[in-house]
Design a protein around this nucleic acid. Structure first.
Lengths: 115, 115
DNA sequence: CCCGTACTCAAGCATCTGCTTTATCAAGCG
DNA sequence: CGCTTGATAAAGCAGATGCTTGAGTACGGG
């Protein structure tokens, strides 16, 4: 019954994806690791700003960070994306099931009357 | 070329899903339409607050609203969810392709050396 | 040891959010 | 018509967000 924890996770996940800079970082990282400096150059933004975006992404589980010399390279954690997809797919499945039911009933009634 | 428009759409979509009340409204609507009043009772919230959440959801394309007597029933638009999924899946696909490449190269090298 | 590089921490600031209260509106009932 | 019901509009407010600047911190080269 730790549903609340899942909700927090989903809050962090979707909130992280709700910003286009962070979404673009995700896309960028899907094709390989990157450092803070590289990302700052890419987005014409200070390293501080990028660092804050990365903190949001890290809290959401979408990325993780290592250490290599003076750099803190970050990499994508695609399992977090899978969590988001599975939440969405559950809603879509419920909806699809209901529509199947409606179609069936409509086919039975063959008519739209007292609605 | 209208990539900006898509980005705006994704901003609205993921931002809408970044709030647990709105996510729960999506889940609720996946099993049928609902009115503002019904949702307000469900979340122990004023109708005004629900109305604002619904506006966010509507702007994102996740729901649409009709009119029936004094009520404004809202229903889910699952195609918007599909947009979110397809964005996510593209990142995951890119990542998976890259990992395949890495695996292949690692198998060729048969060794982890100068790392 | 000093210096540059990569980065984080902290504070400030404008803007956005989520919610409230108050006021208003439109539809239908008596 | 007056009144209730379902809903929106507007304004206000505490708290979050996205960014900035300024001040550290940690690592490594010379």
């Amino acid at each position: 019954m730790d549903a609340t924890i899942d909700e927090e996770r989903l809050d962090a996940l979707f909130t992280a994806l709700g910003d286009r800079t962070r979404r673009d970082i995700v896309v960028r990282l899907s094709s390989g690791e990157a450092t803070v400096k590289e990302l700052a150059e890419r987005y014409a933004m200070t390293m501080q700003a990028v660092s804050q975006h990365l903190r949001v992404l890290e809290r959401s589980g979408l990325i993780s960070r290592g250490r290599h010399r003076q750099t803190r390279p970050c990499r994508l954690e695609p399992e977090a994306l899978a969590v988001a997809v599975s939440w969405i797919e559950e809603s879509r499945r419920t909806w699809a099931e209901r529509m199947d039911g409606l179609e069936t009933r409509l086919a039975q009634l063959q008519e739209g009357d007292d609605r």
